[in-house]
Design a binder for these strands. Structure first.
Lengths: 225, 225
DNA sequence: TATCTTAGCGGACTGTAGTCCGTTTGTCAA
DNA sequence: TTGACAAACGGACTACAGTCCGCTAAGATA
């Protein structure tokens, strides 16, 4: 398994760059026109099938057949269902990611480092609420898979949490003996999609309750005053 | 998806009772002798194969072939690999579960409710360290699956955390406005096997660091004195 | 326009999960 | 001991994931 430590530098830029962008800059030839067409067709078909039958129920074979392409072609574009989900999430994600990266715009600028950490939590939970159907398959087995996009997506989120935590500690708002590295993962755990779905659907907690809950945990590491 | 709320009463007794015990008390006829033999053979073969090739690599088909039984027979006993892992975990689990249920013996009696919560964390992490290879397949997709044993195992752990948290709040050691229900899930999240494996293997945190980390989080909800 | 190169295509193929159902056999009652 | 019955067996079968590799045609070159 890859060790993600210290890869922050390479990962961050990827956040604001789509895989397509990267490919174009790395490769000599552009993608062939039929390949572009097929990619679009796959995404279109997948989107429709997911909407109709639910992500879980749709098989890769079904997608290939519906799109009238061979399985080889499908797998050339997306090596498993999660990658397809990730691609469908791209548009939505970008807005979210830019928001986080920009420091949450005006709202973020008006508050402290700790405030931005809270904003990060709220936005993450909102994002999960809106996209959990695609997020689960997109991230499952993230640590086991060796899929680059998935690792990047996961590591990016982790890094953002780490940065915000570090800032909050540096600004003196959090206890200085905090194990930031552990807390980063703990935060990722609390904001994990599996836990989210369990809490929302099996336990029935509301979005606001989840936000308040994470906040309550974070309040615990705040410098006592 | 099942709502687990309020099922505490039925779940707790199951913890100290093996599936076999339950079957015996519920059914008229005892299990047929050839069935008992086959079950033992399957467990034996699975244990050996898991040890030799790693749980991930071993397939259900391979287990059936090695045990010289039909696939139907295998699936009659264990409907998927995780159930097999759960069965193999039974012995080890029981010691752990009894320990928790007994209130951590002498050590638990000498300390406070909060102390027992910390003990619970430590023991859980130790347990994961020893059994993660079987625990991951045993619990994966726990929320999605409708497997009874799995739900019981998961819900039992959740309940124990809830009880210990409640006691700690009742004894005045934790902030009284704590959202216990949320915190229960959060604790489950922090003690989740997926996060554990990620932190241990991908990030490389030590067992002691994990214990200390969870404790740091819990210290945050402790009544300030 | 003709030729060449190779990215991309597609479907046959392999391996696994999991089901189905006709057959076998352990157990119990007479 | 025998017959009846259901529990248990087992392997053929279906469905899906994912790979492989020979073929097709896009588009670069001249």
């Amino acid at each position: 398994m890859d060790n993600l430590k210290g890869r922050a530098g390479e990962i961050l830029p990827a956040l604001v760059t789509t895989p397509a962008d990267l490919k174009q800059s790395r490769q000599k030839r552009e993608e062939r026109s039929d390949a572009v067409q097929n990619r679009l067709k796959i995404l279109e078909v997948a989107k429709a099938l997911f909407a109709k039958n639910g992500v879980e129920k749709v098989t890769m074979t079904e997608i290939a057949e519906t799109a009238c392409i061979g399985k080889g072609t499908l797998y050339r574009h997306f090596s498993y269902k999660g990658e397809l989900c990730l691609a469908l999430l791209q548009e939505t994600s970008r807005a979210f990611q830019n928001d986080v990266l920009s420091g949450f715009g005006e709202e973020g600028r008006r508050t402290t480092a700790l405030g931005r950490l809270y904003l990060y939590v709220d936005r993450s939970i909102d994002f999960m609420e809106q996209n959990h159907a695609l997020l689960r398959p997109a991230l499952e087995n993230a640590s086991a898979q060796h899929n680059t996009d998935q690792l990047v997506a996961y590591a990016s989120m982790r890094l953002l949490g780490a940065v915000l935590l570090k800032e909050a500690v540096a600004s003196g708002e959090c206890r200085s003996d905090l194990d930031i590295e552990y807390m980063t993962d703990a935060l990722q755990g609390l904001l994990g999609i599996e836990l989210f779905i369990y809490q929302r659907q099996a336990i029935g907690l509301s979005v606001d309750r989840l936000k308040a809950g994470v906040r309550q945990v974070l309040e615990g590491i705040v410098t006592k005053s």
